[in-house]
């Protein structure tokens, strides 16, 4: 016997299918958004960590950090009010490279057995027309020759990272700690994601300290 499919049955199937597909869509959609959120957070987390690592690697090789850049604050409260665009929000340090292959007796009176590289990290607005950020971080280098003269022709300036929400360098005065030593780097990076139906904001906020080594050549 041949049985037909009633309109009621079809309706039921359609309703059930709609419910199942709706549920599946919501599950996939939610999973996709979750994954996207994780990925976005992870990407800026990676970016921030990479930047922090780069700066700390750079600093580890530094012989000395300029005493006045970045500035010193009595406590974190003061540091919190330190503006990104403050002209003193810079990190300036020197790397010294010695050359022991030369006989010092052959050096000219003004010649030394080392060269230096001055490194400056500074923060600038990405859009000069805007009152605030986002900001970009630049790394400038200026070499000094073995007569301690700057070589401006070999100066470099590279944008290390952009779309930074907040980045300050500072020192904290700590009477119990050695007079110089720890240098703080506070970095907050925020990325806006407007691709979805709503605008999402992903932020990583990190404060780290770096131990300073060495000193000026003597």
């Amino acid at each position: 016997m041949r049985r037909g499919v009633t309109i009621v049955e079809i309706m039921m199937v359609l309703i059930l299918m709609t419910l199942v597909l709706g549920a599946l869509y919501r599950i996939f959609s939610s999973a996709q958004r979750g994954a996207q959120e994780v990925m976005s957070n992870q990407i800026i987390n990676d970016d921030v960590l990479r930047l922090v690592n780069k700066i700390t690697d750079d600093l580890r090789e530094a012989n000395f950090i300029d005493e006045h850049l970045p500035p010193t604050f009595n406590d974190e409260t003061q540091a919190r009010n330190f503006a990104v665009l403050d002209p003193k929000n810079q990190l300036m340090f020197n790397k010294v490279k010695y050359d022991f292959t030369k006989d010092p007796a052959t050096l000219a009176p003004d010649q030394v057995n080392y060269t230096q590289l001055r490194v400056v990290y500074s923060v600038k607005k990405m859009d000069p027309g805007q009152a605030t950020g986002p900001y970009a971080l630049f790394r400038e280098t200026l070499p000094f020759d073995d007569r301690r003269k700057a070589v401006p022709a070999d100066k470099t300036k590279v944008e290390v990272m952009n779309n930074i929400d907040h980045l300050v360098f500072y020192r904290l005065k700590n009477p119990r700690a050695p007079r110089h030593g720890n240098l703080y780097l506070h970095l907050r990076m925020t990325r806006l994601d407007r691709a979805g139906p709503t605008t999402e904001k992903f932020t990583v906020d990190i404060t780290t300290s770096v131990k300073e080594r060495g000193g000026e050549p003597e």
Partner: peptide, 9 residues
């Protein structure tokens, strides 16, 4: 003349 800022400690 180098004070503490020269870090020759």
């Amino acid at each position: 003349v180098k004070d503490k800022s020269a870090h020759v400690s």
